[in-house]
């Protein structure tokens, strides 16, 4: 399917999901579904660098929070509408990704992962000490009372995040099938051999870190409006970093479907657990699922299905 057509289908799906929500008269549902859509964006963004390129980013929370705090900053200075803040937050996070790529170029494997974690901590410290955006106290964001075309702001936020999810998944799928994506796969498999096959590894890695950052910034930008009150502990929450890794891992990292499945599954489960048991069970579930999948199905749910299909194909043939 052509990338644009796929985007059309993705957007259509998003609209359908949104429309289905209209039958349920429950504000809470929008908020819960928003979180799931947000994780689709984050997991998909993470997978461009982690799954396609093979560079594990532990700093997803840093990117997410940078997106969120860009909104806070803009809210306090120029008060743009949200749909304009999102691309700005995305761009700033893309630059952050580019910078991270440049600074950590020489690091591979676990050292790269540690560097990204360190970057998130540095950003966290910066924000804690930046009183204009609320510092450690946090900042209150007053939602606009009304928004055009939508019944309420929660609906608007949910629709926005669904659209972003459609964009993220379409971008990931396009990357996967493009020349860029094949170059990234070559880097993941063997960076030296890739360079010796003519792949401009440095440039491609920077494209991957920027693109991944851009999408994470998208995910973070509406966050202050979603919660109404942002503080560093919330925006830089460990859960974002852990979930961004866990969801692609559980879904499968080799294709765009994996993070989508992982995010929908894990995100929904977490929402259900939060309501039925307690919010603390969230991360426990992530941990248990991670361990299970790493040992039982290292290629995620997508990998499991591939295996099943091959087995069946083998029997038929």
């Amino acid at each position: 399917m052509a990338p644009l057509r796929f985007f059309g289908v993705a957007l259509g799906t998003a609209v359908a999901v949104f429309a289905a929500g209209a039958f349920v008269h429950n504000e809470y549902l929008y908020l819960a579904a928003y979180t799931v859509a947000q994780y689709i964006v984050l997991a998909t963004a993470w997978n461009i660098l982690g799954g396609y390129t093979g560079y594990v980013n532990f700093g997803a929370a840093g990117f997410f929070a940078t997106g969120a705090y860009t909104s806070v900053f803009l809210h306090k200075t120029v008060a743009l509408p949200l749909f304009l803040m999102i691309p700005i937050a995305g761009l700033i996070c893309a630059v952050l990704g580019l910078a991270m790529g440049y600074l950590t170029l020489r690091l591979r494997g676990v050292f790269f992962a540690i560097a990204t974690l360190a970057m998130a901590i540095v950003l966290h410290t910066l924000v804690v000490n930046w009183s204009f955006v609320g510092g450690a106290r946090g900042a209150y964001i007053i939602r606009p009372r009304e928004v055009m075309l939508f019944a309420g702001y929660s609906q608007y936020l949910f629709a926005t995040m669904l659209a972003l999810a459609a964009i993220a998944v379409s971008v990931a799928r396009w990357v996967e099938h493009s020349r860029l994506g094949r170059g990234l796969a070559a880097i993941r498999d063997d960076e030296t051999a890739a360079e010796c096959s003519g792949v401009p590894t440095l440039r491609l890695k920077l494209v991957a870190t920027s693109l991944s950052g851009l999408l994470m910034g998208f995910a973070g930008a509406p966050f202050p409006y979603y919660v109404g009150y942002v503080d560093p502990a919330g925006a830089f929450n460990l859960a974002y970093g852990v979930n961004s890794i866990a969801m692609p891992l559980i879904g499968g990292m080799s294709s765009w479907v994996g993070p989508l499945i992982g995010a929908v599954l894990l995100g929904t489960l977490q929402q259900v657990l939060t309501v039925t048991i307690s919010s603390a069970v969230n991360l426990l579930l992530v941990g248990v699922l991670l361990v299970t999948f790493v040992t039982v199905a290292p290629n995620g749910i997508v990998g499991l299905f591939d295996k099943l299909r091959r087995k069946r194909g083998g029997r038929d043939g």
Binding site: R182, G183, D189, T192, A193, A194, S197, V199, P200
Partner: peptide, 23 residues
Amino acid sequence: FQIPRPFHSMTVRENIEIALLYA
């Protein structure tokens, strides 16, 4: 390379396509 360095997640043909695409 002295020690072969294939792109192990790809098929033989895909390996070659990388060089065709980029080199």
